[in-house]
Amino acid sequence: MTALPTEAVPASRPTGAPSGPAHARPRRTGGFPVARTLRYAALLLFLLIVLIPVYVLLVTSFKGPGDASPARAWSLPTEWTLDNWDTAWTTLSPAIWRTLQMVIPSALIAALLGSVNGFVLSRWSFRGANLVFTLILFGMFIPYQAVIIPLNELVLDLELPSGVPTLILLHVVFGIPITTLIFRNYYQTVPHELVEAARIDGAGMLRTYWSVILPISVPSFVVVLIWQFTSAWNDFLFAVFFSSSQNGPVTLALNNLANGALLQNYGVSMAGALFASLPTLVVYIILGKYFIGGLMSGSVKS
């Protein structure tokens, strides 16, 4: 999904606890029993509504041709079959592999650049650094539609192969604003004294970055890598303009699978949608705390 802003505040605190940890606030009472019951009922209702698409995806992906009748649209499969999963995997697995090849290098490179930028713009800054930062940040809000036509020519001029190599470049370049933002916000929470002490000890800029800043950057590297991984994995816009179904990522392959065939086979496309979402969902489930840290990237004053 697309980018997020911006108030200049810590994305995640140095402790690595991004969104106000529960134990930090005094427990207030849960309210009167009736009010509490009503609240639970409302929350449960919304939970069910949010999960409707998940039910549809799962159930449909296990249905065979015998369940094609509209009357059975919402029922469980009469006969559970793995055929759809099989077909979807055969169709999508090359694209999933290409997406991994695209996402991992672009996340790593964008994170490194963002870390250096964040350090310079917050803790080794210079006159005009704020303006430079704002100019970089603007890059994260622009609609890419406003650059795609000349970008297309530029990519041709650079003679970059279409597909993975081009997409790596684009995800790195257009990832710089958000990674810079997250690191800058994080480094602003690093005490000035730490940097000053290194300077007084005679450490230069690179040495300070290498031996003081980088070692404490692990939490924000996790946040940034997850963010870049997710947004590059889920990207469709660059994919559709700068790759083809032969060399493109999984979003493009899924879109072709779902919309390409003359006869729509929802079972296969839903199994495919689940495959395509699995990596980001696994990251969300395992590293949710850091995922939210990326989402928040500074839009909240605390």
């Binding site: 990207d235 469709f236 949608a273 979402s277 980001t280 995922f291």
Partner: peptide, 19 residues
Amino acid sequence: VYLFPMAVSFVASGVVWRW
């Protein structure tokens, strides 16, 4: 649960919402 759809691509959710 309320937040999880955020982790899914629009293309993937488009498949089920089209249905």
